[in-house]
Nucleic acid binder design. Sequence first.
DNA 1: TTCACTGCAAAAGATTTGCACCCTC
DNA 2: GAGGGTGCAAATCTTTTGCAGTGAA
Lengths: 150, 150
Amino acid sequence: MKLTFEKYIASQGLKMTRQRGLILEIFLKKEGHISPEELYSLVRKKDATVGRATVYRMLKLLKEADIAREVDFGDGFSRYEHKYGHAHHDHLICTKCGKTMEVVDEEIEALQEKLAGRHGFSLTSHEMDLFGLCPECREKEARVKRQPPG
Amino acid sequence: MKLTFEKYIASQGLKMTRQRGLILEIFLKKEGHISPEELYSLVRKKDATVGRATVYRMLKLLKEADIAREVDFGDGFSRYEHKYGHAHHDHLICTKCGKTMEVVDEEIEALQEKLAGRHGFSLTSHEMDLFGLCPECREKEARVKRQPPG
DNA sequence: TTCACTGCAAAAGATTTGCACCCTC
DNA sequence: GAGGGTGCAAATCTTTTGCAGTGAA
Protein backbone atom coordinates (compact mmCIF):
# COMPACT_ATOMS: atom_id res chain seq x y z
CA MET A 1 0.00 0.00 0.00
CA LYS A 2 2.78 2.36 0.91
CA LEU A 3 4.49 1.06 -2.19
CA THR A 4 1.42 1.83 -4.27
CA PHE A 5 1.55 5.39 -3.07
CA GLU A 6 5.26 5.75 -3.75
CA LYS A 7 4.75 4.41 -7.23
CA TYR A 8 1.96 6.88 -7.84
CA ILE A 9 4.00 9.76 -6.46
CA ALA A 10 6.92 8.88 -8.70
CA SER A 11 4.74 8.42 -11.77
CA GLN A 12 3.40 11.93 -11.31
CA GLY A 13 6.77 13.57 -10.80
CA LEU A 14 5.90 14.32 -7.17
CA LYS A 15 8.03 13.81 -4.10
CA MET A 16 7.91 11.69 -0.99
CA THR A 17 8.22 13.66 2.23
CA ARG A 18 8.34 12.99 5.94
CA GLN A 19 4.84 14.44 6.33
CA ARG A 20 3.33 12.32 3.58
CA GLY A 21 4.92 9.22 5.02
CA LEU A 22 3.54 9.91 8.48
CA ILE A 23 0.04 10.75 7.30
CA LEU A 24 -0.08 7.66 5.10
CA GLU A 25 1.07 5.42 7.93
CA ILE A 26 -1.55 6.71 10.33
CA PHE A 27 -4.28 6.67 7.69
CA LEU A 28 -3.59 3.04 6.83
CA LYS A 29 -3.69 1.99 10.47
CA LYS A 30 -7.18 3.36 10.90
CA GLU A 31 -9.88 0.87 10.05
CA GLY A 32 -13.21 2.23 8.92
CA HIS A 33 -13.64 5.86 8.00
CA ILE A 34 -11.92 8.89 9.35
CA SER A 35 -12.60 12.59 8.93
CA PRO A 36 -9.86 14.99 7.90
CA GLU A 37 -10.02 16.58 11.32
CA GLU A 38 -9.63 13.26 13.15
CA LEU A 39 -6.73 12.34 10.94
CA TYR A 40 -5.18 15.72 11.52
CA SER A 41 -5.39 15.32 15.27
CA LEU A 42 -3.88 11.82 15.16
CA VAL A 43 -1.06 13.11 13.02
CA ARG A 44 -0.45 16.03 15.36
CA LYS A 45 0.01 13.62 18.24
CA LYS A 46 3.00 12.17 16.45
CA ASP A 47 4.28 15.40 14.97
CA ALA A 48 2.80 18.66 16.12
CA THR A 49 4.38 20.64 13.31
CA VAL A 50 2.27 19.14 10.52
CA GLY A 51 -0.27 21.58 9.15
CA ARG A 52 -3.93 20.98 8.57
CA ALA A 53 -3.62 21.91 4.90
CA THR A 54 -1.05 19.17 4.39
CA VAL A 55 -3.51 16.59 5.67
CA TYR A 56 -6.21 17.82 3.31
CA ARG A 57 -3.79 17.86 0.40
CA MET A 58 -2.64 14.36 1.25
CA LEU A 59 -6.20 13.02 1.35
CA LYS A 60 -6.82 14.38 -2.10
CA LEU A 61 -3.65 12.70 -3.27
CA LEU A 62 -4.65 9.40 -1.69
CA LYS A 63 -7.91 9.51 -3.57
CA GLU A 64 -6.13 10.17 -6.83
CA ALA A 65 -3.76 7.30 -6.12
CA ASP A 66 -6.84 5.11 -5.63
CA ILE A 67 -5.77 4.24 -2.11
CA ALA A 68 -8.59 6.10 -0.40
CA ARG A 69 -12.27 6.37 -1.04
CA GLU A 70 -14.33 9.33 0.03
CA VAL A 71 -17.65 8.64 1.70
CA ASP A 72 -20.31 11.10 2.62
CA PHE A 73 -22.97 10.55 5.25
CA GLY A 74 -24.52 13.92 4.57
CA ASP A 75 -23.74 15.37 7.96
CA GLY A 76 -21.59 18.23 6.80
CA PHE A 77 -18.16 16.73 6.76
CA SER A 78 -16.30 14.29 4.64
CA ARG A 79 -14.79 10.98 5.59
CA TYR A 80 -12.18 8.80 4.01
CA GLU A 81 -11.40 5.11 4.23
CA HIS A 82 -8.51 3.20 2.73
CA LYS A 83 -9.03 0.33 0.36
CA TYR A 84 -6.40 -1.93 1.90
CA GLY A 85 -8.25 -5.10 2.88
CA HIS A 86 -11.43 -3.16 2.26
CA ALA A 87 -13.24 -4.16 -0.85
CA HIS A 88 -16.15 -1.99 -1.83
CA HIS A 89 -18.93 -1.94 0.74
CA ASP A 90 -21.99 -0.02 1.76
CA HIS A 91 -22.98 1.35 5.14
CA LEU A 92 -25.54 0.71 7.80
CA ILE A 93 -25.76 3.82 9.94
CA CYS A 94 -27.53 4.17 13.26
CA THR A 95 -29.31 7.51 13.32
CA LYS A 96 -29.41 7.46 17.11
CA CYS A 97 -25.90 6.59 18.30
CA GLY A 98 -24.01 7.16 15.07
CA LYS A 99 -22.54 3.68 14.93
CA THR A 100 -21.76 2.45 11.43
CA MET A 101 -21.31 -1.01 9.94
CA GLU A 102 -19.81 -1.99 6.65
CA VAL A 103 -21.94 -4.35 4.66
CA VAL A 104 -22.07 -5.87 1.20
CA ASP A 105 -24.77 -7.77 -0.55
CA GLU A 106 -23.76 -9.32 -3.82
CA GLU A 107 -27.35 -9.66 -4.88
CA ILE A 108 -27.89 -5.93 -4.50
CA GLU A 109 -24.68 -5.17 -6.31
CA ALA A 110 -25.82 -7.25 -9.25
CA LEU A 111 -29.23 -5.65 -9.31
CA GLN A 112 -27.67 -2.20 -9.31
CA GLU A 113 -25.79 -3.09 -12.47
CA LYS A 114 -28.96 -4.39 -14.06
CA LEU A 115 -30.91 -1.33 -13.03
CA ALA A 116 -28.30 0.97 -14.49
CA GLY A 117 -28.15 -1.11 -17.65
CA ARG A 118 -31.89 -0.80 -18.17
CA HIS A 119 -31.39 2.96 -18.35
CA GLY A 120 -28.38 2.75 -20.61
CA PHE A 121 -25.90 3.75 -17.90
CA SER A 122 -22.56 2.06 -17.36
CA LEU A 123 -21.68 2.22 -13.68
CA THR A 124 -18.33 3.24 -12.31
CA SER A 125 -19.20 3.41 -8.62
CA HIS A 126 -22.00 3.83 -6.19
CA GLU A 127 -22.75 4.79 -2.65
CA MET A 128 -25.48 3.18 -0.63
CA ASP A 129 -26.19 4.26 2.91
CA LEU A 130 -28.91 2.62 4.94
CA PHE A 131 -30.15 4.63 7.91
CA GLY A 132 -31.99 3.21 10.86
CA LEU A 133 -31.65 1.98 14.41
CA CYS A 134 -28.95 -0.44 15.49
CA PRO A 135 -29.90 -3.41 17.68
CA GLU A 136 -28.82 -1.65 20.88
CA CYS A 137 -30.77 1.51 20.16
CA ARG A 138 -33.83 -0.48 19.15
CA GLU A 139 -33.63 -2.22 22.50
CA LYS A 140 -33.31 1.06 24.37
CA GLU A 141 -36.21 2.51 22.41
CA ALA A 142 -38.38 -0.47 23.33
CA ARG A 143 -37.46 -0.13 26.98
CA VAL A 144 -38.43 3.54 27.01
CA LYS A 145 -41.79 2.71 25.51
CA ARG A 146 -42.46 0.09 28.14
CA GLN A 147 -41.57 2.47 30.94
CA PRO A 148 -41.91 6.15 29.99
CA PRO A 149 -39.93 8.65 32.07
CA GLY A 150 -41.66 11.20 34.27
CA MET B 1 -49.29 19.98 -0.66
CA LYS B 2 -49.65 23.62 0.18
CA LEU B 3 -52.41 22.49 2.49
CA THR B 4 -50.11 19.97 4.13
CA PHE B 5 -47.69 22.73 4.88
CA GLU B 6 -50.35 25.04 6.25
CA LYS B 7 -51.59 22.27 8.49
CA TYR B 8 -48.09 21.63 9.74
CA ILE B 9 -47.48 25.32 10.34
CA ALA B 10 -50.69 25.64 12.30
CA SER B 11 -50.05 22.50 14.32
CA GLN B 12 -46.73 23.92 15.44
CA GLY B 13 -48.06 27.32 16.37
CA LEU B 14 -46.14 28.93 13.52
CA LYS B 15 -47.36 31.48 11.01
CA MET B 16 -47.94 31.58 7.30
CA THR B 17 -46.19 34.47 5.59
CA ARG B 18 -45.90 35.93 2.12
CA GLN B 19 -42.28 34.68 1.91
CA ARG B 20 -43.15 31.15 2.92
CA GLY B 21 -45.97 31.03 0.42
CA LEU B 22 -43.73 32.19 -2.39
CA ILE B 23 -40.88 29.85 -1.57
CA LEU B 24 -43.24 26.89 -1.24
CA GLU B 25 -44.89 27.66 -4.56
CA ILE B 26 -41.59 27.86 -6.41
CA PHE B 27 -40.18 24.82 -4.67
CA LEU B 28 -43.19 22.70 -5.60
CA LYS B 29 -42.97 23.75 -9.25
CA LYS B 30 -39.44 22.51 -9.54
CA GLU B 31 -39.21 18.85 -10.50
CA GLY B 32 -36.12 16.96 -9.43
CA HIS B 33 -33.70 18.41 -6.94
CA ILE B 34 -32.74 21.96 -6.30
CA SER B 35 -29.99 23.52 -4.25
CA PRO B 36 -30.72 26.24 -1.70
CA GLU B 37 -28.83 28.70 -3.85
CA GLU B 38 -30.85 27.86 -6.97
CA LEU B 39 -34.05 28.14 -5.06
CA TYR B 40 -32.93 31.44 -3.60
CA SER B 41 -32.20 32.86 -7.01
CA LEU B 42 -35.57 31.70 -8.40
CA VAL B 43 -37.31 33.27 -5.44
CA ARG B 44 -35.39 36.52 -5.89
CA LYS B 45 -36.63 36.76 -9.48
CA LYS B 46 -40.16 36.99 -8.14
CA ASP B 47 -39.38 39.02 -5.07
CA ALA B 48 -35.96 40.55 -4.67
CA THR B 49 -36.49 41.40 -1.03
CA VAL B 50 -36.49 37.82 0.23
CA GLY B 51 -33.37 36.96 2.18
CA ARG B 52 -31.17 33.95 1.76
CA ALA B 53 -31.64 32.96 5.39
CA THR B 54 -35.38 32.77 4.90
CA VAL B 55 -34.90 30.24 2.11
CA TYR B 56 -32.63 28.11 4.26
CA ARG B 57 -35.04 28.30 7.18
CA MET B 58 -37.93 27.37 4.91
CA LEU B 59 -36.11 24.32 3.55
CA LYS B 60 -35.54 23.08 7.06
CA LEU B 61 -39.22 23.59 7.77
CA LEU B 62 -40.24 21.74 4.62
CA LYS B 63 -38.15 18.81 5.72
CA GLU B 64 -39.78 18.79 9.12
CA ALA B 65 -43.20 18.96 7.50
CA ASP B 66 -42.20 15.90 5.49
CA ILE B 67 -42.78 17.75 2.25
CA ALA B 68 -39.14 17.84 1.23
CA ARG B 69 -36.37 15.30 1.28
CA GLU B 70 -32.72 16.24 1.45
CA VAL B 71 -30.35 14.46 -0.90
CA ASP B 72 -26.60 14.67 -0.95
CA PHE B 73 -24.44 13.89 -3.94
CA GLY B 74 -21.29 14.57 -1.99
CA ASP B 75 -20.21 17.55 -4.01
CA GLY B 76 -20.23 20.08 -1.23
CA PHE B 77 -23.74 21.39 -1.32
CA SER B 78 -27.11 20.10 -0.38
CA ARG B 79 -30.13 19.57 -2.55
CA TYR B 80 -33.79 19.19 -1.84
CA GLU B 81 -36.67 17.63 -3.69
CA HIS B 82 -40.33 17.65 -2.87
CA LYS B 83 -42.30 14.49 -2.34
CA TYR B 84 -45.36 15.56 -4.33
CA GLY B 85 -45.81 12.87 -6.97
CA HIS B 86 -42.35 11.72 -5.99
CA ALA B 87 -42.31 8.52 -4.05
CA HIS B 88 -38.98 7.45 -2.66
CA HIS B 89 -36.40 6.87 -5.35
CA ASP B 90 -32.69 6.51 -5.88
CA HIS B 91 -30.43 8.28 -8.34
CA LEU B 92 -28.45 7.48 -11.42
CA ILE B 93 -25.88 10.22 -11.87
CA CYS B 94 -23.72 10.80 -14.91
CA THR B 95 -20.23 11.71 -13.76
CA LYS B 96 -19.49 13.36 -17.08
CA CYS B 97 -22.42 15.65 -17.86
CA GLY B 98 -24.04 15.73 -14.43
CA LYS B 99 -27.41 14.52 -15.65
CA THR B 100 -29.43 12.64 -13.04
CA MET B 101 -32.28 10.17 -13.29
CA GLU B 102 -34.65 9.01 -10.63
CA VAL B 103 -35.00 5.27 -10.40
CA VAL B 104 -36.54 2.67 -8.14
CA ASP B 105 -36.08 -1.05 -8.01
CA GLU B 106 -38.44 -2.85 -5.71
CA GLU B 107 -36.21 -5.88 -5.62
CA ILE B 108 -33.33 -3.80 -4.33
CA GLU B 109 -35.56 -2.09 -1.79
CA ALA B 110 -36.61 -5.46 -0.45
CA LEU B 111 -33.04 -6.73 -0.28
CA GLN B 112 -31.98 -3.63 1.61
CA GLU B 113 -34.53 -4.42 4.29
CA LYS B 114 -33.33 -7.99 4.46
CA LEU B 115 -29.71 -6.92 4.63
CA ALA B 116 -30.44 -4.52 7.46
CA GLY B 117 -32.48 -7.15 9.25
CA ARG B 118 -29.62 -9.63 9.15
CA HIS B 119 -27.60 -7.12 11.16
CA GLY B 120 -30.40 -6.35 13.57
CA PHE B 121 -31.07 -2.89 12.16
CA SER B 122 -34.52 -1.50 11.54
CA LEU B 123 -34.38 0.88 8.58
CA THR B 124 -35.94 4.30 8.51
CA SER B 125 -34.50 5.54 5.22
CA HIS B 126 -31.69 5.12 2.78
CA GLU B 127 -29.85 6.87 0.04
CA MET B 128 -28.50 5.07 -2.97
CA ASP B 129 -26.62 6.93 -5.66
CA LEU B 130 -25.28 5.12 -8.70
CA PHE B 131 -22.50 6.91 -10.56
CA GLY B 132 -21.51 6.23 -14.13
CA LEU B 133 -21.91 7.37 -17.70
CA CYS B 134 -25.26 8.14 -19.25
CA PRO B 135 -26.10 6.75 -22.71
CA GLU B 136 -25.15 10.01 -24.46
CA CYS B 137 -21.78 10.32 -22.74
CA ARG B 138 -21.00 6.67 -23.38
CA GLU B 139 -21.68 7.27 -27.05
CA LYS B 140 -19.42 10.34 -27.11
CA GLU B 141 -16.72 8.43 -25.29
CA ALA B 142 -16.90 5.65 -27.85
CA ARG B 143 -16.68 8.11 -30.71
CA VAL B 144 -13.58 9.72 -29.25
CA LYS B 145 -11.92 6.34 -28.98
CA ARG B 146 -12.64 5.53 -32.59
CA GLN B 147 -11.24 8.84 -33.80
CA PRO B 148 -8.77 10.40 -31.37
CA PRO B 149 -8.25 14.17 -31.64
CA GLY B 150 -4.95 15.64 -32.82
C1' DT C 1 -50.91 42.95 21.49
C1' DT C 2 -48.03 39.12 21.27
C1' DC C 3 -44.63 36.42 19.49
C1' DA C 4 -43.17 34.43 15.43
C1' DC C 5 -40.79 35.95 11.14
C1' DT C 6 -37.71 38.59 8.29
C1' DG C 7 -33.50 40.66 6.23
C1' DC C 8 -29.06 41.77 7.08
C1' DA C 9 -24.65 41.22 8.39
C1' DA C 10 -21.72 38.77 11.14
C1' DA C 11 -20.38 34.19 12.61
C1' DA C 12 -19.36 29.52 12.11
C1' DG C 13 -17.31 25.53 10.25
C1' DA C 14 -15.14 22.81 6.56
C1' DT C 15 -11.95 23.16 2.98
C1' DT C 16 -8.81 25.69 -0.25
C1' DT C 17 -5.33 28.86 -1.58
C1' DG C 18 -1.39 32.40 -1.73
C1' DC C 19 3.02 32.89 -0.29
C1' DA C 20 7.65 32.77 1.52
C1' DC C 21 10.63 29.44 3.04
C1' DC C 22 12.16 24.36 3.06
C1' DC C 23 13.80 20.05 1.35
C1' DT C 24 13.58 16.02 -2.06
C1' DC C 25 15.42 14.26 -6.03
C1' DG D 1 19.86 23.68 -8.04
C1' DA D 2 15.15 23.27 -9.63
C1' DG D 3 10.79 22.69 -8.55
C1' DG D 4 7.62 20.45 -5.71
C1' DG D 5 6.11 20.57 -0.55
C1' DT D 6 5.05 22.79 3.78
C1' DG D 7 2.92 25.67 7.47
C1' DC D 8 0.47 29.55 8.27
C1' DA D 9 -2.96 32.74 7.76
C1' DA D 10 -6.18 34.54 4.90
C1' DA D 11 -9.72 33.52 1.73
C1' DT D 12 -13.80 30.77 0.15
C1' DC D 13 -18.03 28.75 0.28
C1' DT D 14 -22.13 26.98 2.33
C1' DT D 15 -25.05 27.34 6.09
C1' DT D 16 -26.40 29.28 10.68
C1' DT D 17 -27.29 32.79 14.02
C1' DG D 18 -28.00 37.36 16.61
C1' DC D 19 -30.64 41.22 16.41
C1' DA D 20 -33.74 44.95 15.79
C1' DG D 21 -37.55 45.92 13.28
C1' DT D 22 -42.07 43.82 10.92
C1' DG D 23 -46.35 41.56 10.62
C1' DA D 24 -49.71 37.50 11.17
C1' DA D 25 -53.22 35.83 14.26
